[in-house]
């Protein structure tokens, strides 16, 4: 009787241990899958495309020019466009930009947000 009780306790303990292991490993893999999914959906590449296109447009623009970036873009939903410290930052589908892409211009560059677009203007 005592022996049977000991065996039951041991089996119960082993089962509990295994369940805890499975849950923790499952959590780790869930985190890993979310992180990988973020890379696979290519938001980073699309953000890169937008930032570099805008930077090249600013580089070649002269005063009086302005160009529009639609929020519903081919490269995804553009949520924010900023120019600061000589760099362009574009936020696409929730992916913030920390590095941006540098542009060069002798002129003043500004961005204003309208209903469904961002307007980048180049002034003297």
């Amino acid at each position: 009787m005592e022996f049977q009780l000991k065996m039951k306790n041991k089996r119960g303990g082993l089962l509990q241990q295994t369940i805890v292991h499975i849950v923790l490993v499952g959590l780790i893999f869930a985190l890993f899958l979310f992180a990988t999914a973020d890379k696979i959906n290519s938001r980073g590449v699309r953000q890169q495309v937008l930032e570099k296109q805008v930077a090249l447009l600013i580089d070649s623009a002269v005063p009086g020019m302005s160009f529009v970036i639609e929020k519903n873009n081919l490269n995804g939903l553009v949520q924010r466009v900023e120019v600061r410290d000589g760099k362009v930052f574009v936020m696409v589908e929730g992916l913030s930009s920390f590095k941006g892409y540098p542009y060069f211009s002798k002129y003043s560059v500004s961005v204003r947000e309208e209903d469904n677009k961002f307007v980048v203007s180049i002034n003297e």
Binding site: I40, V45, Q48, K52
Partner: peptide, 16 residues
């Protein structure tokens, strides 16, 4: 998991 994630990051990264 971190090693596999790192390898996948490198594979899916693309520099324009």
């Amino acid at each position: 998991a971190v090693v596999v994630w790192g390898i996948s990051s490198v594979s899916y990264a693309h520099y324009i």
